[in-house]
């Protein structure tokens, strides 16, 4: 519980820092939270992500990992599992696509239960998958929607996306589904960690922190749109200033805007050092990206020590004369 409370406290302190700074310290603090920190965070994010992925690419894969689910292609009369254990690049693309877009391995999550008898049963545990896919899809939608503040003219795809997102037409400005789905999904993922004893036991500070941070981002965004209104034109002016390298601080956007931007900056800067790097890591997973072709292709461990070998052919070459003399059988006369 202390890990959970610690993460929550850090997020609250971050919010207070940005809010009080932007509301009381004036231009200097707004410059810090609206321009300096976002630029620094973006730089840390991009360089950090590239660095992590290149680091992984430099790590050799010692074994081909054939022990994934599903039958590997072997004899013609044994049916191979083409998606679970693909032997071709195309098959690997298929497996990767389902993994990245539909979280296929998470879908197979089961819950083991012991009932009277004693009888063991494996039940489908769908809620983690459901919350995970709702979380990722809505987060992506929210992110894409924000392009309306970073582009001029706004691409029609983004306008269409917002129209679909706001199709309920509840209130003015209309509620956008993705924001609320995001908040609900991330709240479920947090509650799951707190309430389920087994998950709670293995949860660390670095599991709670991004959840609280994302809750903060979603909540501040929704509040900004519907309750503590901000000047949207000013917000876009600031955002456009950032992406065109003509940074400006328009007056009177409102403290909560700087809280939102600061949260996002912290998330970006924290990203490369955290478990959130699974965004790049999923593409580097050997059990997902290696074809299951160990029966057809030999995988050589890249860091194998160069062992001095002496094959039988070389051995016979060396001792053939003596072998024939002693009456030993040889392969070549």
């Amino acid at each position: 519980m202390i890990k959970c409370m610690f993460s929550l406290t850090v997020v609250i302190i971050l919010a207070v820092l940005a809010f009080v700074g932007a509301e009381t310290a004036g231009f200097k603090a707004q410059f810090l939270f609206g321009i300096a920190i976002p630029y620094a965070a973006l730089l840390i994010f991009v360089i950090g992500v590239l660095n992590r992925v290149i680091g992984w690419a430099r790590s050799p894969v010692p074994f081909a990992i054939p022990s994934t689910c599903g039958q590997q292609k072997s004899l013609p009369w044994i049916k191979p599992a083409n998606l679970d254990n693909p032997t071709t690049t195309g098959g690997v693309f298929g497996r990767m696509f389902l993994e990245v877009f539909l979280f296929r391995s998470l879908f197979r999550n089961t819950k083991t239960q012991l009932s009277e008898g004693p009888k063991i049963s494996f039940n489908l545990e769908i809620f983690l998958w459901l919350a995970a896919i709702a979380f990722h899809a809505s987060f992506f939608t929210v992110l894409a929607r924000h392009l309306r503040l970073f582009t001029e003219p706004v691409p029609s795809v983004i306008q269409l996306l917002e129209k679909v997102d706001g199709m309920l037409q509840v209130g003015v400005p209309g509620i956008l589904l993705s924001g609320f789905v995001l908040l609900a999904a991330v709240s479920y993922l947090l509650l799951r960690r707190i309430i389920e004893p087994q998950v709670n036991y293995i949860s660390l500070t670095q599991d709670y922190f991004p959840l609280f941070l994302i809750i903060g981002i979603a909540a501040s965004g929704i509040l900004m749109r519907h309750i503590f209104k901000i000047d949207v034109i000013g917000a876009k002016q600031l955002a456009m200033g950032l992406v065109t390298f003509h940074p400006t601080i328009p007056e009177g956007i409102g403290g909560i805007f700087y809280v939102h931007v600061f949260f996002v900056s912290v998330l970006l800067a924290y990203f490369p050092f955290s478990k959130l790097m699974h965004m790049g890591g999923i593409f580097m997973s050997p059990t997902r990206n290696l074809p299951g072709n160990t029966r057809a292709v030999r995988h050589v461990n890249p860091w194998n020590y160069p062992v001095h070998t002496h094959t039988y052919e070389e051995y016979e070459e060396e001792f053939r004369g003596k072998m024939i003399e002693a009456g030993l059988p040889v392969e070549k006369e």
């Binding site: 582009t151 001029e152 003219p153 691409p155 002016q237 456009m240 992406v243 065109t244 390298f245 003509h246």
Partner: peptide, 9 residues
């Protein structure tokens, strides 16, 4: 996309 040019407010 913006090519460094901020549209006038």
């Amino acid at each position: 996309y913006n090519m460094g040019k901020a549209a006038p407010v």
